[in-house]
Design a protein around this nucleic acid. Structure first.
Length: 424
RNA sequence: GGAGAGGUGGCCGAGCGGCUGAAGGCCCUGCUCUCGAAAAGCAGUAUCCUGUCAAAAACGGGAUCGUGGGUUCGAAUCCCACCCUCUCCGCCA
C-alpha cells in the first residue's frame, strides 16, 4: 500500500510508475473520494469540537444546579448531524481504501523497464552446465524410474498437481530442508521459525495477496482462513501492529513451510513433474530492516539464497525482474533460475524482493529511532532459500548418470546418511 | 462442546458516566550529583488523522482504553454482537 498522502501529492508520478508496470488505477474516483473525505472530515471535526466544549459546559451547569436543557437539546441535534456525516465519511474511506489496496508498489529507480519476463536482463550466470553423453531425462521420468516420485497415485489421493515421494525421494526432500535451514540459521544468521500454515484475511491483505489475488489462494470452507501460498505471509505478519526499537533491527527469520497455490490460470502449463504444484515445500527468508539499508540487505539476501545453489553445485542465473514482470508488492526483485538440462532452460527457483515500506504500511510494522520522536515504517524483504521441490527436480536432472542413477551433491550427503547416489 | 475470568500506553497496572489521553510503577531520554559508573533527585516520554504552512518545526482541532454497533448532551466506564487470551470440566491428537 502506498501512503494516501503520497498518492494525493504525486498523482502524475504514481500514474507514470504504474503504467510502467502495466497497472491501471482509477485515479479519478480516488481524487473525488479523497477530496470529499477531507471536506466531510473538516465539518465533522468542527461539530465534534463544539460538542466537546458545550458538553463540558453542561457538566459545569449541572454541578452548579442550573438548567442546561436548552444546550442539551441543541447538542442532540449536533450529534445527529455528526452521525450522518460519519456515514458519508465511512463511505468515502471505503472507496479510497479499496483503490489504494489495489495499487501495486512503485518500482525502484534501478528496476529495468520492460513488458514481461522476456525483458528481464540476466545479471549473472554461475556454475558450469553439466555435459551428458546421453539424452538427459526429465526429472519426472527419473523419479518414476527410481521409484521415488509417483504422480499417478498422488492424483488418486488428491488430484493433479500434488506430490507423492517415496523412500530416498522423500528423504532427499527432508535432507534439503535440513540442509537449507542449517545453512541459513548457521552462517547466515537467520532465526528459525515454524509459523501457522493457515492465516486470516488481515494477514493476507498485509502482505499483498489480498484483496486482488484471492483466486490464487486456497480458502478453508466455512472458515475465514486461507492456506498460506508462502511462508512470507505468516512470517512477515509476526510483527504486525508492532513498534520495534531501532536496535532490534535487522531481524532475520527463516521458515520451512508447505505452500499452497491454486495455480488458477496456469492450466496446461508445466503439467508434468515438480515444477508447478498445488502443494510444495519452501524454505523462506524474511527480513525486517532499516529503510536506509534495505537495498544492501536485498543483495545479501540474494547471496544467501545463491549460496544454497553454490553449495549444491547447481548451475543457475540471476535475472532482475523488469517493471512489467514485477510482483504486486515488490519494489525490486531478483529471480534465481536453476538450470534444467532435460528442457534446456533455466527455471525460477527463488525470488528475492525488497518491498520497502509497502507491506509494513499495510501490516503497520514500525520502529522508533533512538532519541527521535515519532515512528517510521520498517522495510521488509523476503526470498526463497529455496523452493524445495524444484531443488529436488534440479538435482535429479543435473546429477543424473548414464546408468539412471543420481549422484548426490557432496554437501547433501551428511543429511542423507552419507548416501552417495540414488539408485533404482 | 459446557462453566467462569479477562483484554487499558513500549511493558506492568489503576480507573468503572463529565474534573481521565488516561493515576502509580517500570523501561527509555535529558539534566543534577560523581573522576566516571551505579544509586538518588528533577524533568520529559503514546499513536493516527487533520488545519495554519511550500515544507519542517511549532501551535490549534479531532480520534484512539480488543473490534464493530447502540444508549447518552457527554462512554475506557452502561447495553448488544463479534474476535482474542486465560482457568476448570468433557472430548481428541
Amino acid at each position: 500500500m502506498l501512503e494516501i498522502k503520497f498518492v494525493r501529492q504525486n498523482l502524475p508520478a504514481v500514474q507514470k510508475a504504474l503504467a510502467a508496470r502495466g497497472a491501471v488505477v482509477d485515479i479519478e474516483t480516488f481524487k473525488n473520494a479523497d477530496a470529499r473525505r477531507r471536506e466531510v472530515l473538516l465539518e465533522i471535526e468542527e461539530l465534534r469540537h463544539r460538542r466537546n466544549v458545550v458538553s463540558d459546559r453542561i457538566a459545569e451547569m449541572k454541578k452548579a444546579g442550573e438548567n442546561a436543557q436548552k444546550l442539551v437539546e441543541e447538542m442532540r441535534e449536533v450529534s445527529g448531524k455528526v452521525k450522518m456525516l460519519d456515514r458519508t465519511l465511512a463511505e468515502n474511506e471505503d472507496i479510497i481504501n479499496n483503490i489504494i489496496l489495489e495499487i501495486p508498489n512503485l518500482p525502484h529507480a534501478s528496476v529495468p523497464g520492460g513488458r514481461d519476463e522476456t525483458d528481464n536482463p540476466v545479471l549473472k550466470q554461475e556454475g558450469s552446465l553439466p555435459q551428458f553423453d546421453f539424452d538427459p531425462l526429465p526429472h519426472w521420468t527419473l523419479g518414476k524410474n527410481l521409484g521415488i516420485l509417483d504422480f499417478e497415485r498422488a492424483a488418486k489421493i488428491a488430484g493433479a498437481r500434488f506430490p507423492l515421494y517415496f523412500g530416498a525421494g522423500a528423504r532427499l526432500e527432508r535432507a534439503l530442508i535440513n540442509f537449507m535451514l542449517e545453512v541459513h540459521t548457521g552462517g547466515h544468521g537467520y532465526t528459525e521459525v515454524l509459523p501457522p500454515f493457515a492465516v486470516n484475511r488481515q494477514s493476507m491483505t498485509n502482505t499483498g495477496q489480498l484483496p486482488k489475488f484471492e483466486e490464487d489462494l486456497f480458502k478453508l470452507e466455512g472458515w475465514e482462513y486461507f492456506l498460506i501460498p508462502t511462508a512470507e505471509v505468516p512470517v512477515t505478519n509476526i510483527h504486525q501492529d508492532e513498534i520495534l526499537d531501532e536496535n532490534q533491527l535487522p531481524i532475520y527469520y527463516t521458515a520451512c513451510t508447505p505452500c499452497f497455490r491454486s495455480e488458477a490460470g496456469s492450466y496446461g502449463k508445466d503439467t508434468r513433474g515438480l515444477i508447478r504444484q498445488h502443494q510444495f515445500n519452501k524454505v523462506e527468508l524474511v527480513k525486517f530492516v532499516l529503510p536506509e539499508s534495505s537495498y544492501a540487505e536485498l543483495e545479501s539476501l540474494l547471496s544467501n539464497a545463491e549460496n544454497i545453489l553454490k553449495r549444491l553445485q547447481l548451475p543457475y542465473q540471476v535475472v532482475t525482474l523488469c517493471t512489467g514482470d514485477l510482483g504486486f508488492s515488490a519494489a525490486k526483485t531478483y529471480d534465481i533460475e536453476v538450470w534444467m538440462p532435460a528442457q534446456g532452460v533455466y527455471r525460477e527457483i527463488s525470488s528475492c524482493s525488497n518491498f520497502e515500506g509497502f507491506q509494513a504500511r499495510r501490516a503497520n510494522i514500525r520502529f522508533r529511532r533512538k532519541g527521535k520522536k515519532g515512528t517510521e515504517l520498517v522495510h521488509t524483504l523476503n526470498g526463497s532459500g529455496l523452493a524445495v521441490g524444484r531443488t529436488v527436480a534440479a538435482i535429479l536432472e543435473n546429477c543424473q548418470q548414464s546408468d539412471g542413477s543420481v549422484r548426490l551433491p557432496e554437501a547433501l550427503r551428511p543429511y542423507m546418511g552419507n548416501m552417495e547416489r540414488i539408485e533404482p
